[in-house]
Computed example of a mutant assay.
Amino acid sequence: MPSRSVDAATWEAALLRLLEDVFTFARSGPRLHEDWAEDVLAVLERSVADPRGWSALDPETFKEGREAGFRSHPFRAMTAEDLRAGLRPITAGAAVELLSSLAQEWFFEGSPIRSREDREAVLADARTLLGRFGPDAVFWTSSDLARGSDAPDFLARDLEGGHPFTGYMMDLGLIAVSADEVGVFWSFNAN
């Protein structure tokens, strides 16, 4: 995993190349609580800003729900305990593969990451995004593929959701936690 030497321009370029063309939520926030799940909830509720002021992806589609009073839309209202109960830990290598996989569509993907010509570039962008959180970061996912292993091969299989955190038919998330930041990357089956 790269060091924290990622800068804002490198982060934004990797973020847009990797996730701009799919229906995703990608935001970071500061670590303000002993319990990282509280910090993740603050990111989902959009009550904190990126501590570095860097770019985020938050589809306009979600704005309607927030205007109706649901700050965490499209995420369900939950507690830190609810959040932790629906997540499983994964290794840094698995996190890179999962984040790379979020760059593809849920169904009928003509070129899943495992067979794309630009596979290495996609993996490099995922490493760049996760590199922001440093070598000691820990990662969590909602994917059912992580039930039996903390290092599932996310590139060998199609996207598979898990614990539902939204009202969408399927959603899949990755959370990065460092000593001073959290990152939330979430993909939605919105086709």
Rank of each mutant, 00 (worst) to 15 (best):
H33T: 02
L32P: 09
G148R: 15
F70P: 08
A156D: 03
G93A: 05
A121V: 13
A56Y: 06
E64L: 15
L123Q: 02
A80G: 00
K63L: 14
L15I: 07
A56C: 07
P59A: 15
D50S: 15
W36G: 01
D180W: 13
R88H: 09
G65Q: 13
D150I: 03
F23D: 06
S115L: 04
P2A: 12
T24L: 10
M1G: 08
R17T: 03
M1S: 12
S28D: 03
S143Q: 05
R114I: 04
L102V: 02
A151Y: 00
M1N: 07
A121D: 08
S100I: 12
R157E: 06
L87R: 03
M78I: 08
A77S: 11
S55P: 02
A179P: 11
A13G: 10
H163L: 07
P164M: 10
A13N: 10
P89C: 07
A8M: 11
P135H: 09
T91P: 00
L155Q: 05
F25W: 14
T24V: 11
E117V: 03
F25R: 03
R88C: 00
V43W: 00
L99C: 06
R147K: 14
R52T: 01
A80V: 01
G86V: 06
R88N: 08
N191C: 00
W186C: 09
A94T: 05
V48R: 07
H73S: 13
S143K: 00
E12S: 14
W186T: 06
F23K: 05
V6D: 01
A14C: 00
W54R: 03
T91A: 11
P74T: 07
A26I: 01
D21N: 12
L123M: 12
E60Y: 14
D82F: 02
T141F: 09
A126E: 05
E60F: 13
R147P: 05
A156R: 12
